[in-house]
Every structure is written in structure tokens, then in C-alpha cells.
Amino acid sequence: MCGRYATTANPSRLVAELDAIDETETENPEIPPNYNVAPTTQVLTVVMRHDRGRTDDEPARRIRRMRWGLIPGWTKAAEPGVPVKGKPLFNARADRATTAPAFRDAVKHRRCLVPMDGWYEWVVQPHSVLGAEGGRAARLPYYMANADGSRLYMAGLWSVWRDRTQPAGDPLMSCTVVTTDALGDLTRIHDRMPLPMPQRHWAAWLDPDHPAPAHLLGPPDEAVVAEIVARPVSTLVNNVRNNGPDLLARVQDPTPGEQLGLL
């Protein structure tokens, strides 16, 4: 669920749009778009934090770069400097985040926004395309985005991890995208979707001093979801090495064989 997305956001653009502070520590704020973002990639996030060492000032929006795939702070290093091996925690279910050990601390005080232009999901065809026996099922990709092309801001959680065996090492910030039940027309693509966070809820969601209001982890705003449309796209997106705006282009609703290049 939500294991790939596309974003044209860069730090300088987000700083201007959100009146935020750039903390990405990059020499090139005009980083190129990424049309095939995959877990473990460094991604842009929006947080609200106090100045370092202070709690009496007004928290400010900050743009930070994080690893997509949350690493709980209590995680032991798999080996020196390597936090985890295996499948990254790139999604967190909204209905379980407050109780799941990996996410419950982040829900209290480390919530973020993950800007994206849209995300991909795959519809798995139930029938083989290579014959009744020994065949493989077709995975047909779809791209979900706002109909008007405007940027989406998805609810996210984040964490800070340090290798306790290397106290002098740099901390690693990581994040996950919160997911919820899909609504409306999107249910024909997948039963889950990222949780969109409308601008009117940003202040409460990002507030570092208070837990998230329970209703923000509830079902998404139906009006917001109604603006999101799905379109079939090329199977080029299936390979993370493919990257470019052509991945977003609508293709004709194909048969499984056409998608796999077999017809």
C-alpha cells in the first residue's frame, strides 16, 4: 500500500509556499522532481518544531529530509551504522498507529506532512496471462492525484534513530506515511490510501506540544478525496530505476497481456 509516489516539490518551493525554514542542509535547493519515489529514499517532509533547546518560543514550520521507512528510536543496530534490515516501515495504519509500538510515540509528538503530487497503486488481475497453469498475474499500475494537479500533503509520522554503539555518529531521521480506508471511486483500485491532511488541520496535526486530535486519524474528508482521480499508467513505473514525467502519462485501459507486452 502506497509504496511509490511522485513529487515535484523541492526545498526552495516548499519554503516559499509554506513560509517554512529550510533544514535540508543541501547546497542545491532546486533538486529535480522524482516521479518514482520508493521506500528507503530520502524524501522531503514538513514538521513544526521549536528552536533547538527551547520550548518557550513559537514553533515554526521546517522542511526536513528524511528516510522513507520509519525506524523507531529504540531499534538496535543490525550492524554498526546500519539500523535495520528487511522491509522498511513505510506505511502506518491510522487505526493502529496510537497503539502500535513502532508508531505510538511518534503519534504523540512527531507528526509530519509528506508532500506528493500523487501516488501509485497496482491492480492485480486474478487470471494468469500466460495460460491456466504456470502463468503469472498481471499487475496494472494506476496513478492517483488531484484532478487540478495541485499538491497533496499526506499525514506522516517521523522518528530519530541513533546507533548506540557509535555515540558520535549522526542521528538518522525517518518517516512513514499514514494510511486509511479508501473512499469512493478509489476503492476500485485499492482498499487503502494515504491519509490526506487538509490545510485547515495542519496546525493541529503538526503541533509538537500536544498529541494528535483523535478525529484527524479518523476517516478522510470525503470532499478532499472526491478531488482525487485515478488513471492507468505504464508498467515502466514497476521498475524503480525508471524515472521521468512519462510515468504519469495516461495509457489506454489495457488488457493484462498488453500491459506485460505479451500481445
Rank of each mutant, 00 (worst) to 15 (best):
P80C: 05
G81C: 12
G81H: 08
G81I: 12
V82C: 10
P83I: 10
P83A: 12
P83M: 09
K85V: 11
G86L: 07
G86H: 04
G86M: 03
K87I: 14
P88L: 02
L89D: 08
F90T: 08
F90Q: 08
A92V: 07
A92Q: 01
R93E: 07
A94D: 14
A94R: 09
D95G: 07
D95R: 09
D95E: 15
D95K: 13
R96F: 12
R96N: 11
R96C: 12
A97M: 13
A97D: 11
A97H: 12
T98A: 15
T98C: 11
T99C: 15
T99V: 15
T99F: 13
T99Y: 11
A100I: 09
P101C: 08
P101W: 05
A102F: 13
A102V: 08
F103R: 05
F103D: 07
F103T: 08
R104S: 06
D105A: 15
D105M: 14
A106W: 07
V107C: 11
K108D: 12
K108G: 06
H109G: 15
H109I: 09
R110E: 03
R110W: 08
R110G: 06
R111Y: 03
R111H: 03
R111T: 02
C112H: 03
L113T: 00
L113P: 01
L113S: 00
V114F: 04
V114E: 04
V114I: 14
P115M: 01
P115T: 00
P115H: 02
P115V: 00
M116P: 04
M116R: 01
M116H: 01
D117I: 01
D117P: 08
G118A: 03
G118T: 04
G118N: 06
G118Q: 06
G118M: 02
W119Q: 01
W119P: 01
W119I: 00
